[in-house]
């Protein structure tokens, strides 16, 4: 049976006056039906661009997918005509964006913005779609949903707007939702609520979730599998608990050490990864992490390591991964 989503060797570039930005540089991963897959990485490593590439929503004309394949239920989305692609968006793959404050149209009512998606895709009447809109607003925990339909985005708080965005993503019953840092712009307490809500609903409705985040703590809690991104590439992937317990890439290790953990002594100092991510217009010949890596050997600066998978599907793109692969929490 075909995977729900298969991304194969995706390369996305931006042509800018200062050169070609290799925002996504050979990325492969897949998503099974109903599971939650995380994409983690520092700011600017290409997470959003990879997500926008799937829906073909890159800014024109600067952004271009130069090679690769994106198969959704076996069908290559990159080969679809514009009209067929439009029918996939919102209907089969929906997206929740990072910025709830600006992602809703300020001059249109919540009701219109919710119902128009259903009217577009489901061939149902306005009245019917309004009923469904109320049901979905209820489902995402918005009080007094009937009144909300007549309100405008500025009447709602950031957390409430993100709930509206989630209702909007769910309302056509898609099989995949891409959530691009859905909680980064929100208060910490609201963050947990929204993530719980998304996780709960995706399980209940059997929707697969691509959860983009830069927080490994979120991954451990909500994701089945995880892809760690660095400079446009996936440098480690596997089951969330494997990656969390036995990281096989120095970058992942660094990320883990910068997250507070309950199973570590309180007095342990949080570390941050020294240095800056590389300039995506001038990628080095070898591994892009070399300048910041504590495990580097001579070979690292000369050859790019491929993602090598172990039997359990845990993969790492590091020449020295064997040295890292020891249980954590003992050192």
């Amino acid at each position: 049976m075909a995977k729900l989503l298969e991304v194969q060797d995706l390369r996305t570039q931006f042509h800018t006056p200062s050169g070609t930005v290799h925002a996504v540089d050979g990325m492969s991963y897949d998503v099974e039906k109903g599971e939650t897959v995380a994409i983690v990485g520092e700011s600017g490593c290409g997470k959003s661009v990879s997500a926008l590439s799937i829906l073909r929503l890159l800014p024109v004309p600067s952004g271009r997918i130069v090679s690769g394949a994106i198969r959704f239920l076996g069908q290559d989305l990159l080969a679809l005509g514009n009209e067929d692609m439009r029918a996939v968006r919102g209907r089969q793959i929906a997206m929740v964006f990072q910025e709830p404050m600006t992602s809703l149209n300020p001059v249109l009512t919540i009701g219109l913005q919710l119902t128009e998606t259903m009217v577009q895709h489901l061939a149902i009447s306005r009245a019917e779609s309004a009923k469904r809109a109320v049901a979905y607003l209820q489902m995402v925990g918005i009080p007094e949903p009937e009144q909300r339909l007549k309100q405008y985005p500025h009447h709602l708080s950031g957390g409430m707007r993100q709930r509206v965005m989630i209702a909007m993503a769910l309302c056509c019953e898609p099989t995949l939702i891409i959530a691009d840092e859905p909680t980064t712009a929100l208060d910490v307490t609201i963050q947990a609520q929204i993530l719980e809500l998304m996780k709960g609903l995706s399980q209940r409705l059997g929707v697969a979730l691509i959860l983009i985040t830069h927080n490994l703590g979120v991954v451990a809690r909500y994701a089945d599998r995880v892809n760690v991104m660095y400079a446009g590439k996936i440098i480690e992937q596997g089951k969330a608990r494997d990656v969390y317990r036995h990281p096989r890439h120095p970058y992942t290790l660094g990320l883990l050490r910068s997250v507070p953990r309950l199973d570590q002594p309180r007095r342990r100092q949080l570390e941050s990864i020294p240095g800056q991510p590389p300039d995506l217009t001038r990628l080095p010949n070898g591994c892009a992490f070399v300048p910041r890596c504590g495990f580097k050997v001579e070979r690292c600066a000369l050859e790019v390591p491929d993602l090598v998978h172990a039997a359990n599907g845990h993969g790492s793109a590091c020449w020295e991964q064997e040295r890292l692969d020891k249980p954590r929490g003992t050192g």
């Binding site: 929503l57 439009r86 964006f97 992602s103 149209n105 577009q120 965005m165 909007m168």
Partner: peptide, 11 residues
């Protein structure tokens, strides 16, 4: 951003 949202909805 809201135009990108409208596109992502498949309008």
């Amino acid at each position: 951003d809201y135009i990108r949202t409208a596109r992502a909805k498949g309008l």
